[in-house]
Nucleic acid binder design. Structure first.
Lengths: 196, 196
DNA sequence: CTGATATCGAACAGCTTGTTCGAGTATGGT
DNA sequence: ACCATACTCGAACAAGCTGTTCGATATCAG
């Protein structure tokens, strides 16, 4: 009765589906994939698929939920003081899981992943930035700054992914510090003056 | 034989389809709309639709092609010197066409529009930035900087749209100058030093 | 070995997308 | 005012996809 160990078959099925999905995303883009194609490639039958996932989307999410947990844990242990560290962590994480990120965050990845990542990163960052931002007395709303931070960070990530991870994570972090950090510094120092 | 004036009927059809599409995007998001719904709402028949447009996507593009031309013309007359002006122009343009931008660039807008806008803005900006950037001697690739510029600018636009255009275009341009401009200044002054 | 459980395979209804074609009708040019 | 043109309509079509159901079959954990 206790500690039910997981059936080998379901693991096999999950693996096959995940791999098939990632392959197909790289080949033709997420939006243009049909469930039938995934099933054919993974050698899994319709009914089995719908016993596990509600959707094509559900499969996509489950596809990087594991990794996401990893990243989430790493970021949540950071001190709110270091503004640049979350971005660095993200880039290192992406570099370690290149294959998946290539499919999910690349040109072919579709809206869903971007939005998902953005929500998640945004959530974590809100805590980091809310305090310092309130003190700074800048007129900018917190969520605007957070949105800007995440979009900037994920934007550079997207470029990197689409250029096949040339240059290593440290280089990208350097670019981030040049392009993105100054703006954040400016707003955290309260240098914003509304024109109206 | 010369100067064939356009049939009223096709204009009526186009208008109806455009309006129906925008309404539906605002209600349920572009991805979840079916052609049938658009046709029902616009009181247009299947065969007529496919006589005009190849796709749901084609309709979407045609939906803001007119406005896009306007913007493109305005931006292309700018002097490459002023880094901040293109963003300002974009925000003013968006403010004038709030309804359409709300549908196209908002949460509900779908990938296509974002990518389209990004390509277009990116194309224009490449010319503006290529020269100054080459002189600056920064190690950063032009297309990375351009991508960053467009994503930043469109990102703020997205936030604005999703917050129902609170604050007027000048305010948003101010936020842009605080958040986005410093990074661009930094890279144009050659302050990037690759860590590896 | 045995009972529990996951997969298979096939069939199903309901919805899509694009295409075709002829018959009716509004339109613009003269 | 008229007529040829060009557009819309309506209906029907094939082909594809999604999500569900169910009994038979196989594989698994203990």
């Amino acid at each position: 009765m206790p500690t039910m160990s997981e059936d080998r078959r379901v693991r096999r099925t999950r693996r096959a589906l995940h791999e098939a999905l990632i392959e197909l995303v790289l080949e033709k883009g997420y939006e243009r994939i049909s469930v039938r194609e995934i099933l054919d490639r993974a050698d899994v039958v319709r009914s089995t698929f719908y016993a596990h996932y509600q959707d094509k989307d559900a499969l996509l999410f489950s596809c990087f939920e594991d990794m996401l947990g990893e990243l989430r844990a790493a970021v949540s242990t950071l001190s709110p003081a270091d503004t640049a560290r979350p971005a660095e962590l993200l880039y290192e994480h992406a570099y370690q899981h290149r294959t998946v990120y290539r499919a999910l965050c690349g040109r072919q990845g579709g809206n869903l992943v971007t939005q998902h990542l953005q929500r998640m990163v945004g959530q974590v960052l809100t805590e980091h930035l809310a305090g310092p931002l309130a003190e700074s007395g800048s007129g900018l709303p917190v969520d605007l700054v957070v949105a800007h931070y995440t979009e900037t960070t994920l934007g550079l990530l997207g470029w990197w992914v689409n250029h096949d991870f040339c240059h290593g994570p440290a280089w990208l972090a350097g670019a981030w510090q040049t392009l993105a950090l100054p703006g954040l510094r400016a707003v955290l120092d309260g240098q914003f003056q509304p024109n109206r």
